[in-house]
Amino acid sequence: MAAELDSLDVEQLLQEHYEAQERIHRLGLRPLSPGLKALMWTLRIYVILMIVAVAVNVIHSV
């Protein structure tokens, strides 16, 4: 029954969970190509410009 689990059951039932956590924990940084870095910076600048646009819109409408 689900209510009666010993530690062995828990480990067996969560084996996939533990393995995945272990795998992710060991991962390092993903190498970013210059193109990818440029894209990420573009998206970041996009957000900043858009927030400025929202601020301008709010100031105009007040």
Binding site: A2, D9, V10, L14, H17
Partner: peptide, 11 residues
């Protein structure tokens, strides 16, 4: 946390 999750997984 893990015991609760294991119970859910067993079901």
């Amino acid at each position: 946390e893990n015991v609760s999750r294991a119970k859910d997984r067993l079901r």
